[in-house]
Design a protein around this nucleic acid. Structure first.
Lengths: 249, 249
DNA sequence: TTACTAAAGGTCTCCTTGACTTTAACTAGT
DNA sequence: ACTAGTTAAAGTCAAGGAGACCTTTAGTAA
């Protein structure tokens, strides 16, 4: 609200950008799309893809446009949602920049297209970024960490995991997603029971796919449900993380 | 990220504000704090309290400051969290305004202080705003609706409900919060069993409070837990709402 | 055929949940 | 002082979900 002001000297307009945390599963590992910065500040550093919000577009449209520019994929095919907004005064040395972070989840996407305006876009294993080895530009490490946690909890209560799987997919494909994103193995039998019982999560195609070896697996498409009931909880692990996440800055 | 630009003509800085959805329970009804606008546009209309983010403060700090200005309450005593950011090009006729919405939950707060810069701040029953009778300024009806839904689901997975209760409080006080926010009654016995079993949700004081009539109730304080495990699910009701919420704009 | 592998389904026990009942502690009215 | 009324708190019970584990099925490779 641009109201009850009184301090016109204290407020100054800011640049508004969107940053994208684009996650995918490749080779049984969670990857994030990063671009190499082609200019100062942080020249040469890796960063999340993103860019300015244009004059006549909504934030969601800006995120969708950037997503398509960076991946070459029609953004409507991926899951895309706003996560959090970052606006610390010091986060960009050039001035006040507010960035709205979006989380995008998709199946094993093509290697980033040339021709995008991103310098050398590439997939990086999320683990290698978060274990402190690689520091991203600006506050992008924080954005990635917090968005990943959002993704992890989204898997508990929603059906977004299916967004990672190219259709049609098997129950094992879906389980792999959960295991890779959460970072620990699940019991195949119990997992199957839960996801197949959940209403409108999976829609059987009637077809089968033979793996390299072993019994052929039934194929499914994404159902209409967006919320998962009952949810697929991570149980005890939650209790550990809860003191690290919830403080204001 | 203020990067990969190329279109300096297409980007223009925007005003950045925070808007607050301050909820409280009074007289067994959910209320939201609204202010009457003292200038155009939407002069005289009711709106969410909020204001500009200043030069050297974070978004969280701005929200905290506005919260204290509007309620006169030390914001650190309330639950405050960022919810969503709204930035449609047309949402403010004066130009591009990006607003970061914050959700604040607190116990029955004092009637809004005079001396704040808000013209006639007041508590309004949430229901009366959302049933379409009263249209708020700008897109504030949308912000309120979406923030309320966030609050409702927060009650399922976190311990924020206790933020509505002035300490010390009884299990019935807490149940009332759930009933008022969710909008339907809960079984007192089963509710008690769940919240008292959840680890570190409630911390008994050992004291009791006698109601007007009936058996005295044990008193509790908020425990340290921020996440609620196991969660307190709304069950079936979730399935209904799920198709209305999750689309990009 | 046999060995191996992954998918799919079943078993069993424990725990949570929801619906409901019972007991406890207090107040107000007669 | 007894009874009715009211809220808190605890208990009961059947149904269902979850975790751990086993069995069967349907394919491939030697």
């Amino acid at each position: 609200m641009i109201d009850n002001d009184g301090d016109p000297g204290q407020v100054r307009p800011a640049a508004v950008t969107v940053d994208l945390v684009i996650l995918t599963v490749r080779h049984d590992e969670l990857h994030v799309l990063l671009v190499e910065r082609g200019k100062e500040p942080h020249l040469g550093r890796l960063a999340l893809p993103g860019g300015h919000v244009r004059e006549n577009e909504t934030l969601d449209q800006a995120a969708l446009r950037e997503l398509e520019e960076e991946t070459g994929v029609n953004g409507h095919l991926l899951h895309l949602e706003q996560v959090h907004t970052y606006g610390d005064p010091g986060r960009d040395p050039r001035g006040r920049v507010i960035t709205v972070a979006y989380l995008a989840l998709g199946p094993d996407l093509p290697v980033p297209v040339a021709g995008s305006d991103a310098q050398g876009a590439r997939w990086a294993p999320v683990e290698s970024v978060l274990d402190g080895q690689m520091e991203l530009a600006f506050d992008h490490s924080t954005i990635l960490r917090e968005s990943l946690e959002r993704a992890r909890s989204q898997l508990e209560y929603t059906t977004v995991a299916a967004a990672f799987c190219p259709e049609p997919f098997t129950v094992s494909d879906l389980r792999k997603v959960y295991e890779v994103v959460w970072g620990f193995p699940l019991d195949p039998s119990n997992f199957r029971r839960k996801v197949t019982r959940a209403e409108r999560f999976l829609e059987p195609t009637g077809e089968f796919r033979a793996p390299q070896i072993g019994r052929p697996a039934a194929l499914y498409r994404r159902g209409e449900a967006r919320l998962l009931f009952p949810p697929l909880l991570r149980s005890g692990d939650v209790a550990d993380a809860q003191f690290t996440a919830t403080t204001l800055r």
